[in-house]
Measured scan of single mutants.
Amino acid sequence: NKFNKEMRNAYWEILHLPNLNEEQKNAFIQSLYDDPSQSANLLAEAKKLNDAQA
């Protein structure tokens, strides 16, 4: 299933973003579980936030 793979990839990438705190990571990961079809968008948002907090 495409979403499972996308979701897993997004999950791991978000988990390893160095500039997000636990609360931010948890919020993105919760959103992933709530709507796996948004994995790519959530990952993009997480990366933007990560870069902004660098």
Rank of each mutant, 00 (worst) to 15 (best):
K2N: 15
F3W: 05
N4Y: 13
N4F: 09
N4G: 14
K5I: 01
K5R: 02
E6I: 12
E6L: 07
M7T: 07
M7R: 00
M7L: 04
N9I: 14
N9Y: 14
N9G: 02
N9M: 15
Y11G: 02
Y11N: 02
W12Q: 03
W12T: 02
W12K: 02
E13S: 11
E13L: 10
E13W: 08
I14H: 00
I14T: 02
I14D: 00
L15Y: 05
H16T: 04
H16Y: 06
L17N: 04
L17S: 05
L17E: 03
P18L: 09
P18F: 06
N19S: 12
N19E: 10
N19V: 08
N19R: 06
L20V: 10
L20T: 00
N21K: 07
N21Q: 10
E23P: 08
E23L: 15
Q24H: 09
Q24S: 12
Q24E: 05
Q24W: 03
Q24Y: 05
Q24D: 09
K25M: 11
N26V: 14
N26I: 13
A27D: 07
A27K: 12
F28K: 06
F28N: 02
F28M: 05
I29H: 05
Q30E: 11
S31H: 15
L32G: 01
Y33L: 11
Y33T: 03
D34P: 06
D34R: 08
D34W: 08
D35G: 12
D35N: 05
P36Q: 06
P36S: 04
S37Y: 10
S37H: 05
S37K: 12
Q38A: 06
Q38K: 03
Q38M: 09
S39W: 15
S39V: 13
A40N: 12
N41L: 09
N41Y: 07
N41P: 15
N41V: 10
L42H: 07
L43S: 11
L43Y: 06
A44H: 05
E45L: 07
E45D: 09
E45H: 13
A46E: 00
A46Y: 03
K47N: 06
K48D: 14
K48M: 12
K48G: 10
L49F: 15
N50L: 03
D51G: 08
D51A: 10
A52H: 08
A52Q: 09
A52L: 08
Q53L: 12
Q53G: 01
